[in-house]
Design a protein around this nucleic acid. Sequence first.
DNA 1: CTGAAAGCGCTTACAG
DNA 2: CTGAAAGCGCTTACAG
Lengths: 345, 345
Amino acid sequence: MRVTIADVARAAGVSKSTVSRVLNAKGEVDGRTAERVRDVIGRLGYVPSSRAVGLARGRSRTVGMLAPSLAWPWVAELVQGAVDAVEAAGYGLLLFTCSRGRESMTRLAAQVSANAFDGLLVVEPETETGAVAAMHRSGLPVVLIDDRVRHPGFPSVATTNTLGGRQAAHRLLGLGRSRPLVITGPRRFDCVRERLEGFVRTMEEHGAGHDPRRTVEGGFGERSGEEAVARLLAEGAGFDAVFAHNDLSAMGALRALRAAGRRVPDDVAVIGFDDIPLAAYTDPPLTTVRQPLRAMGGAAAALLLARIGAGPPDGLPDDIPDGDRVVLPTELVDRASAPGPVLTP
Amino acid sequence: MRVTIADVARAAGVSKSTVSRVLNAKGEVDGRTAERVRDVIGRLGYVPSSRAVGLARGRSRTVGMLAPSLAWPWVAELVQGAVDAVEAAGYGLLLFTCSRGRESMTRLAAQVSANAFDGLLVVEPETETGAVAAMHRSGLPVVLIDDRVRHPGFPSVATTNTLGGRQAAHRLLGLGRSRPLVITGPRRFDCVRERLEGFVRTMEEHGAGHDPRRTVEGGFGERSGEEAVARLLAEGAGFDAVFAHNDLSAMGALRALRAAGRRVPDDVAVIGFDDIPLAAYTDPPLTTVRQPLRAMGGAAAALLLARIGAGPPDGLPDDIPDGDRVVLPTELVDRASAPGPVLTP
DNA sequence: CTGAAAGCGCTTACAG
DNA sequence: CTGAAAGCGCTTACAG
């Protein structure tokens, strides 16, 4: 039924070894012979069985990717970036999701033990990093993406959180706002601390200072943004801007401001973080610090492939250091909730 | 290094055949022997190599999934639904994306020829259905999801588009609106024709009729919704509601209405289709006809696994006919852009 | 430059 | 109930 290397060998009048050589361009093969073999391969439409190749070589030309639910747009973007890069290298991407909790991890672990793929891309598992660490120790190449908590033991891809905070601050300073409300994510995340630090430092450098009472810890959800603004408003805290640590909480802030009759950006300018697709559709559209999610997914894949020894087709892009930690730049996306001008640093 | 079935056999003092038997619960094995073998397996942490098993059995316990870009939220939802179901069955999901166009298809075709997976889930490829058909003919089990154009030759999963149109019409009738603007998707899609037909028919059944001049063909993008509303408004066409064939164009309609100073829902009620996550965040939140995307992804996976003979763990859910075409029900999601009451059909 | 043979790690008749 | 052997479809030393 299926045409095998033996069929090709027979039809071409050579041994399987020779067919294998022309297939993999390995070792010397006579020009005519090679051509003849290639002819037969074409005529028979022969494609090596990936299973057999995998078994013989001990590699599967497949990488795994573990991600939280794809329902989160930023996760989907990361995965898309990874898929593209992996595919371009002629690899396959086996997708795993944490959506079923502990059982998902068990399934993943089983596939790891079964050697189903050559390396694993991991999108910040908040829990279960122990399981991932175990896989890593057992010899599986692993690359982390956007680790909210830094794991020194792993190669990883992140983004410039501190710079992102600075970019937000610069924009607000440029707008003449000096009393911002900051709605952070959970403090236990490194990215949160970095965003806050970059923001506060820049404010201070420009003589604006920052009142810690105007910093509220949120949970990255829409609700926390809404509540923070509503509460501060009720307390009579004066603020002329909001810097939210992600777009969802920025959206909550927008909602609360609208409910309170405050105009955005006239009364209060608002800046988010992430640049999820939603950000372009809020009212007003959200100015935000963009994380290059696709590029991050792609960079992580490139890093992993390099480690696996896959030799990415075009090598790593020039702007990605070939180190253990790739950090891609954030970028301020200019929209109506906090329109320019930019104060150049 | 890696522990193999031979290691287990040796340590347990039996043959590889016996280990294989207890592994797969196939054939008779003495109780004590089996227990001893299981012990050793546990102690050694043995897990069969998926590559070797795959080669020996001619199956990979992996399914492929071809989808357009994950950047579209509805695609991400479908994939998530499929991942969950596939994983629950102990299978892996190899993800392919059309994002690189023709080359993506070539890569996919190569993997198909290489027998990298046992079956393929396909999310409506607008072009390239020829390629998919070819794979199907060559013996690969294929299940289509949400086929915008019906392909009689394939098992598929779709949604009740006609009913969805009726649901939208009922809601508008319940609100006393009788002069709706309909912004469709591209007419070449079956789903578009069905949504329109269900909608118009219901209007007519309730004596409302429908003026074809108030039907505008859109492209499923935000822009087309915005432009349609702006144009009809400029032409002075009177309408008291909008039924958009997807949420994005409904969002465009909302924008245009706001720009024109029309109040939603007081002046114009708006209903979308899909229920993407965005829909809950528009201003006002969007009433929409929900497609059960996760369930569709899951149903498609179940259908495919059944075909592969994987015997899904819990069988097909009761409400999914075990036929060649699964059609899941749409559902009206009640939000502020077209609030109840519902006119019961 | 080319081929015969062993090996990758399992499964599956076939004997017993 | 159990084992020896062949086979899945490749790759890779090893000879020549």
